[in-house]
Design a protein around this nucleic acid. Structure first.
Length: 441
RNA sequence: CGGGGCGUAGCGCAGUCUGGUAGCGCAUCUGGUUUGGGACCAGAGGGUCGCAAGUUCGAAUCUUGCCGCCCCGACCA
């Protein structure tokens, strides 16, 4: 993509409505544009990141054996009356009447909808466990939206739902998602800590939040520092392995958000110097809630003994749009965003410092065309001053930059810059392809 | 929803107290000089001062009502 063709409205100063760094940087780098409180349009750069995250989440769900479906944003109120949540959910739920005065709602979550799909289509224990997910926009009419996309009213969420024949099987499924989540966040370049959590209005008896450390987070967290190292080998785990002992190992470490924090227990089982206390951002939440919905909505299957059984359910959320902000919170510096490779909107940026010099431009174009075949490249071909180009490229956070300047013409050298370390080195033009290949970009 | 703040050009702000018909920086456009870290010179365009009513000869400025946005708190992925 040539920058001269790209819609990238960057700002030198951040709009006053933004308070935290990720919100400021998202506005400054032209990723989003606010529509109303807690509701945003996604501009090209922001949309690209959103899709990258979405695709990693999707891929890991698929690998874990979860089926993707797509449920509507607008749901009939009747389903929610069946589960009893139409009354319970309160003003956070956006209620709408259609032209026939039928009561509808913009879905804040989909337990009722999915349970309805399940009970219409699944009748036998032989089809269990059944794992389904979708990635869809949700709406929760928050009292006070804030922090940009991290706490919006409209947000993109991956929500998965599981159906099992009994509690034991359902806990195995829960553990499967537990591992799936650790793998997902690791792939996104994040260190997510699983924490025992309250189940809240969704209900149930077993629940974990996945939290990344950040001083702008809304949760107060307490954990054993050793749990951070436990996640290092997570990518080596196969879904065919026995996952339960691995999950039990994670659960054996102390980790809790403030509402579950037990100071006496913390002091007892965690060495003083390993006791960590921090703020964190919740990026995922998994629940095992048994028969709460299947019971009220009569989601039953026939078991091997020919008798009807109420299925055991769980639900598993990842806040995809929130992750965009959360990743920036955990990966930026004073110049701007630093994207982890996996979610970067472009794999690398190419800067032509001499757009008016024919020879330099010819080299830059050649470089761009050569690597654009293999990776996604943003090519700064604009006629701006060097400083403008550098600071813009740093702001939008592409992790790898190729800079073409006077030495390209005189000595056949281009500069590679690592956004994160700031380190640079000159590369011979002939060896650039190989260099990038070795860097895996 | 309680408490607080703010709404003036795309962004950041001054002007409001003390009423006299709108200004600064950045951005944008034109011309020129620049070109390895947000460069310079000259010129230009862009605002029913959130909306409505009122007071007044006259309102960005005073009064009332409404709308929007942000912050703190309680609630949530």
């Amino acid at each position: 993509m040539k920058l001269s063709n790209y819609f990238l409205p960057v700002l030198k100063e951040s709009p006053s409505e933004a308070e935290i760094v990720s919100h400021k940087l998202m506005l400054r780098s032209g990723m989003i544009s606010q529509s109303s409180s807690g509701i945003y349009s996604w501009l090209p750069l922001g949309l690209k990141v959103l899709k990258k995250i979405e695709n990693i989440v999707r891929d890991e769900q698929n690998k874990a054996g979860v089926n993707e479906i797509l449920m509507p944003t607008i749901q009939p109120a009747d389903l929610w009356k069946e589960s009893g949540r139409y009354e319970d959910y309160g003003k956070e739920m956006l209620r709408i009447n259609d032209r026939q005065e039928r009561e509808m709602l913009y879905g804040p979550t989909n337990e009722e909808q999915i349970t309805d799909i399940f009970r219409r289509n699944v009748k036998s224990y032989k089809e269990l466990p059944m794992l389904l997910y979708h990635i869809q926009w949700k709406f929760r009419d928050e009292l006070r939206p804030r922090f940009g996309v991290m706490r919006g009213r409209e947000f993109l969420m991956k929500d998965a739902y599981s159906f099992d024949i009994d509690a034991a099987s359902s806990e195995d499924t829960y553990n499967r998602f537990f591992i799936c989540y650790l793998k997902t966040f690791a792939r996104l370049g994040l260190k997510a800590i699983p924490m025992a959590a309250d189940t809240g209005p969704i209900g149930g008896d077993l629940s974990h939040e996945f939290i990344i450390i950040s001083n702008t987070g809304e949760s107060d967290i307490y954990f054993d520092n050793n749990i951070l190292n436990e996640g290092n080998k997570i990518s080596d785990i196969s879904y065919d392995d026995d996952l339960n002992p691995i999950v039990e190992k994670f659960k054996s470490y102390y980790s809790a958000s403030d509402e579950k924090h037990d100071k006496a227990k913390f002091d007892e089982i965690v060495h003083k110097e390993k006791q960590m206390n921090s703020k964190g951002i919740e990026v995922g939440h998994i629940f095992h809630f048994g028969t709460k919905y299947s019971n009220s909505m009569k989601a039953n299957v026939l078991d091997s003994d020919g008798k009807e059984k109420t299925v055991h359910m769980g639900s598993y959320g990842i806040g995809i749009s929130r992750l965009v902000g959360a990743i920036i919170e955990s990966s930026h510096d004073e110049s701007g965003i630093i994207w982890p490779d996996a979610v970067s909107p472009f794999t690398l940026g190419v800067i032509n410092l001499k757009p008016k010099d024919d020879e330099a431009s010819s080299i830059a174009n050649k470089v761009y065309n050569q690597i654009d075949d293999k990776s996604e490249v943003l090519f700064d071909d604009k006629n701006d001053n060097a400083g403008v180009k550098f600071s813009r490229m740093d702001l939008i956070g592409l992790p790898h930059q190729i800079i073409i300047g006077s030495k390209a013409v005189s000595d056949g050298l281009v500069e590679y810059k690592n956004r994160k370390s700031g380190e640079t080195e000159f590369i011979n033009l002939d060896k650039l392809g190989k260099f990038l290949e070795e860097m895996n970009v």
